[in-house]
Amino acid sequence: MSPHEFQRLIAGVTAQLDGRPLDDSLAAWLNDIWPADSPTFRELANACRSGVAEGWLCSREAGGIRYGRIFKALPDTHGFSVDVVDMRDIAGPHHVHPHGEIDLVMPLTDGATFDGHPAGWCVYGPGSAHRPTVANGQALVLYLLPQGAIEFTTA
């Protein structure tokens, strides 16, 4: 898997998200069409694990969190930026999602959760905020941010 192949894989997902409201119904839809036991989920998870192992994903580290933005918001990714983080039993920095956030949770440890979510998809609507937290082990989380918008806060 190369970054270019990863972008193609992500574009197949973001094409299905383009123009959809970021809300609970989108999370339900994502978990219905691409559940944690689906080929698409496995392909995305394998690509993320490969990218981390090869060093082109999660190439930075701060405060015990490995992270990195692999793509800015691009026409090829339908206006979504793409970030991947690698977290183990830790809370990350508080931030606001001006346009929302779509997350793919990929536990590396059985039972690991992201903000209480197991393997699968979660969606935060526009204006939402959180302190992203992985509990019960280690997980990779892929973030799709409309227009790449994120605002880190001190809250």
Rank of each mutant, 00 (worst) to 15 (best):
A119K: 07
G55R: 04
R8L: 14
D103M: 12
T40W: 13
P93S: 15
L30N: 01
R8T: 14
D76H: 11
F41D: 05
A15C: 04
L104E: 06
G148Q: 03
G92M: 07
V134S: 05
V82Q: 05
H99Y: 15
G68T: 05
E151T: 04
D76E: 15
G116W: 06
A11I: 03
A73T: 03
S2H: 09
D103Q: 14
I33E: 14
L9H: 03
M106R: 09
R60F: 14
E54N: 13
A135P: 05
A11L: 05
S25I: 02
D37N: 13
E54A: 14
D103H: 13
M106F: 09
C122H: 10
I33D: 11
A155V: 12
P21A: 11
R42H: 15
L108R: 12
D18P: 01
D103T: 12
F114W: 15
D32M: 10
A119C: 09
G12P: 01
A53Q: 10
Y124C: 08
P75D: 15
T154R: 15
V134C: 02
D103W: 10
W56Y: 15
L44R: 01
D18T: 08
S50R: 14
D89F: 00
G55Y: 00
H95S: 01
C122I: 13
L22R: 07
G19W: 01
G116Q: 02
G55H: 02
I90V: 12
G68W: 01
R66D: 09
E101R: 10
P75L: 12
H130A: 08
V52G: 06
G116C: 07
A149I: 07
K72E: 15
G51A: 07
T109C: 09
L144T: 04
A91Y: 00
G64N: 00
S2M: 10
V141D: 01
I65K: 00
L144C: 03
H117T: 14
A45K: 09
A155H: 12
P21N: 08
G92S: 10
A129S: 11
A47Q: 09
L144N: 00
R8E: 13
Y124Q: 10
A139F: 06
V134L: 02
E61Y: 05
A135N: 10
L104D: 01
V134H: 01
F41R: 02
T153V: 05
A27Q: 03
